[in-house]
């Protein structure tokens, strides 16, 4: 496979994952703004921070309020991480790697772009927001379904999956990073309504509020949530899950190509710190520092994959 094609696939699936994550962040923010009348500014601000677009946002707006944040995250062309931007980038990458995709995957990505372009043509009114977010999620599911259902399990698939999990790990880590203080055991007032809302927002941002309730029988506690998001191998958006997927997809490539690279060691290293780990040992080390290191090393891994598989030169 061409290095450029591998890079195109990797980025195509990073962008698709980002579209879904951004939509989910908006959804969580919207929900908390609806259920809590006070201090929604802080919530919208943390949504923008989590999406890692705060600097760009502040160039355009002075205050963090619902309509501005929603517009910036969904429709702003100048925001490289807005849903409209990443959906378009995903489709451009798909055109570039068209020969590596099945007709089903290409059509799903193309239709995703056509649908969302129309949906986001005009500013989104509050009444339409839930339906629009629903459509964005549904379109992503269609692309994912086409990928799983029609693509050969070869290097093409591996690069697509690497992009997905690298982006997802980054997203989950950033959600924790922005709200880490609410997850610290010392900050926890069990059952306090403030924490309950914060925790629920975090869980909603990774679509895991229902799963968590099932698994933990309804008892929300900061340590349990941190454990769930960081170490639980059952949750497809946890750091442990994502890093295990990164390792296994890189191993498929190594097997396929008969060659291991530096990125394989980096991925192993990323996973090792999550394996057989107790959440308390992470708290002892410092949750904020742990997550900061993870985000950095995850980025380094992405760059190394790019180099080892000759995406650019």
């Amino acid at each position: 496979m061409l290095g450029k094609t591998a890079g195109g696939l990797f980025w195509m699936f990073r962008f698709l994952e980002r579209a879904e994550n951004t939509a989910r962040l908006v959804e969580a923010g919207f929900r908390i703004a609806l259920t809590r009348s006070t201090d929604s500014e802080t919530e919208w601000k943390s949504v923008v921070t989590t999406a890692a677009v705060k600097a760009g946002y502040q160039e355009k707006y002075d205050t963090f309020n619902g309509p501005n944040v929603v517009d910036y995250l969904l429709r702003e062309k100048d925001n490289p991480s807005s849903v409209i931007s990443v959906v378009e980038n995903a489709r451009t990458n798909a055109r570039m790697v068209r020969t590596a995709l099945t007709t089903e995957v290409w059509e799903a990505v193309n239709e995703n772009w056509m649908t969302i372009k129309v949906l986001l043509k005009r500013p989104v009114r509050e009444t339409e927001l839930p339906a629009i977010l629903g459509t964005i999620r549904q379109q992503s599911a269609l692309v994912r379904g086409a990928l799983h259902g029609t693509m050969l399990r070869n290097d093409i698939y591996d690069f697509a999956r690497l992009g997905t999990f690298l982006e997802r790990a980054d997203n989950t880590a950033r959600i924790i990073d922005v709200k880490y203080y609410t997850l610290l055991p010392s900050a926890s007032f069990v059952g306090s309504s403030l924490d309950n809302v914060q925790w629920e927002t975090i869980l909603r941002s990774v679509s895991a509020h229902r799963a968590f309730r099932w698994l933990d029988e309804g008892d929300m506690a900061s340590a349990a949530i941190a454990d769930f998001l960081i170490l639980d191998r059952r949750l497809p958006r946890s750091l442990a899950f994502c890093s295990a997927e990164l390792v296994s997809n890189l191993n498929f490539l190594a097997e396929d190509y008969g060659e291991r690279h530096k990125c394989h060691d980096l991925a192993e290293n990323l996973r090792a710190r999550l394996n057989n780990r107790d959440i308390n040992s992470i708290f002892e080390l410092g949750l904020h520092r742990f997550i900061g290191d993870f985000i950095r090393d995850n980025n380094v891994l992405g760059k190394q994959i790019e180099t080892d598989y000759r995406f650019n030169n």
Partner: peptide, 23 residues
């Protein structure tokens, strides 16, 4: 067949070669 652009190609040992994930 592979779909290549100019920047995927270079001359290697007197032949035209494309940059793949494996060299």
């Amino acid at each position: 067949a592979e779909l290549v652009e100019g920047h995927d190609l270079r001359v290697v040992d007197g032949h035209i070669a494309m940059r793949t994930t494996r060299g």
